[in-house]
Design a protein around this nucleic acid. Sequence first.
DNA 1: AAGGAAAGCGACCGATCGGTCGCTCGACAC
DNA 2: GTGTCGAGCGACCGATCGGTCGCTTTCCTT
Lengths: 202, 202
Amino acid sequence: MSPRRSVADALETRRRIVERSVDVGTLEGLEILSFGRLADDLGMSKSGVLRHFDTKEALQLAAIEAATGAFAERMAARVRGSERGLERLLALCDGWIEDVIERQPAGGCFFTAVSTEFDGRPGPVRDAIAAALRTWQDALAAEVRRAVALGQLPESTDVAQVVFELGGLVMGLNQRLLLRGDRRAPTRARRAVRRILGVAAA
Amino acid sequence: MSPRRSVADALETRRRIVERSVDVGTLEGLEILSFGRLADDLGMSKSGVLRHFDTKEALQLAAIEAATGAFAERMAARVRGSERGLERLLALCDGWIEDVIERQPAGGCFFTAVSTEFDGRPGPVRDAIAAALRTWQDALAAEVRRAVALGQLPESTDVAQVVFELGGLVMGLNQRLLLRGDRRAPTRARRAVRRILGVAAA
DNA sequence: AAGGAAAGCGACCGATCGGTCGCTCGACAC
DNA sequence: GTGTCGAGCGACCGATCGGTCGCTTTCCTT
């Protein structure tokens, strides 16, 4: 039907597969993902999909990697122009919240979805998810520390505690938005961020 | 092999099926649940299981109902003896945290797991999960209001905000415990509860 | 003692699962 | 122009999926 066209097309095909996998993973889970359905969705054959990913696990890992990169890029774009320290920290938090809101129709936060899916299931997929979350939380922690160093947050700030609370906050926001359609949730989340950081609301 | 023995035994069988379903649902998800595997786990035939639940959806709904009841009972036991108001509110929060910790080997919090699994999937299962969460959060809110009425929390307390933040908190705790084995997480969670309520740490 | 209700079983259904294999055929290096 | 590479395809594999059906066996009612 539509055989190979070029190397660039092949990369594009792979990208489309991964992109769709991230969406399905967010909405219904990475375990429910299947080659057959993926092929149908993309208008290609199951074996065509399998040419790019030998195993389902490889596909899941690719989806996690892609989601991680995409999230990092979106966050980077959101904080662009903000000064390091408290300003960027607030931009990170608000951007994070905004991201969950915007991705609501796509199933909300990818990592919230897949982390709860694999948290009771040892293996490389779970490890990859844990690593991605860790990286993000470390980045957040670094920014909190920076704000402390700049004297914008009190010396007594418990950095790990702050990051811990922020993480749960976004999961709660995600749940409220998706499961209850709570339109007040974003405001509540932003308010909570300020309270956690001990900063006055804007 | 082992046909019917008595009505009580049949109820017991049903209970065992549901119990196992809750565990599998927590650890791996309610969608991954299958009659065949359930039958294997319980040492019975697939059709034997199907005799009790005509469809998979009915099984999922039964699991949600059972988990809801079990959680309510455990919470009721934990706050038994505490006076209504702030004391019981704190007992609820700490008990909630303790519950997640204790159920860690079983996959942590059932509702955190299934809510993220079905939040992007309309249907009766999702509705049942949303209703259960709602009931619990309403109960929490009632206790917060009671503490305010008793003058144990400031008049200015934003009840819905408090409940919102508490919900996310436990999801974050669940993630930290399961995905990172963070032993400091429970302490952080208890500390966060105090901060959210504006109460000094014990 | 007789009969109905129902738990549990085993065989079976079409569909889908993850995955393999052999083939075609266009892109690209030479 | 020729030959290699590889993306994509279609047929196929055994296993499992959700679910149906008919049967046995026991409990329980009458």
